[in-house]
């Protein structure tokens, strides 16, 4: 004899949507972001003004090409949502489980803001 069920929610939730962005972002981040870091963190920066100027030129040439813009938009946006989702769940794991709903606002909101900002930036290049 079953001794009563817990009152679990009965509706499908939007978690599927966030998870899909998280998952796609995970792939993008895994494949592209280490190379991005190598490029913009180590290869292009330079203490030498001439080298830095040349680096900036290359970067501008690349980022000005629309296929690269699209890749940047896709990779960075999805990676942001990947991070947002993971950060939200990490915060839940360390004791903010009751704030699960509220945390969506700063986490996914932040990723959305980043996306808008990035889109404007790319538009302007």
């Amino acid at each position: 004899m079953s001794r009563g069920k817990s009152g679990r929610p009965t509706r499908p939730s939007g978690e599927a949507f966030w998870w899909a962005l998280f998952s796609a972002g995970g792939v993008m981040a895994a494949i592209f972001v280490p190379a991005f870091i190598l490029a913009t963190g180590f290869l292009l920066p330079s203490g030498d003004p001439a080298a830095a100027a040349e680096g900036a030129q290359r970067l501008a040439a690349l980022a000005g090409w629309w296929p690269v813009k699209l890749v940047l938009l896709g990779v960075i946006t999805l990676s942001l949502f990947h991070c947002a989702h993971r950060i939200r769940h990490t915060l839940m794991d360390v004791g903010m489980r009751r704030l699960a709903g509220f945390l969506k606002l700063p986490c996914y909101g932040g990723a959305l803001a980043g996306t808008v900002w990035l889109a404007l930036v790319l538009w302007g290049i």
């Binding site: 679990r8 499908p12 939730s13 978690e15 769940h89 699960a100």
Partner: peptide, 14 residues
């Protein structure tokens, strides 16, 4: 999936 799609039913898994 109707059941599994509910908020933390499956998505709780990290």
């Amino acid at each position: 999936l109707e059941v599994m799609l509910r908020s933390e039913a499956m998505w709780g898994c990290t």
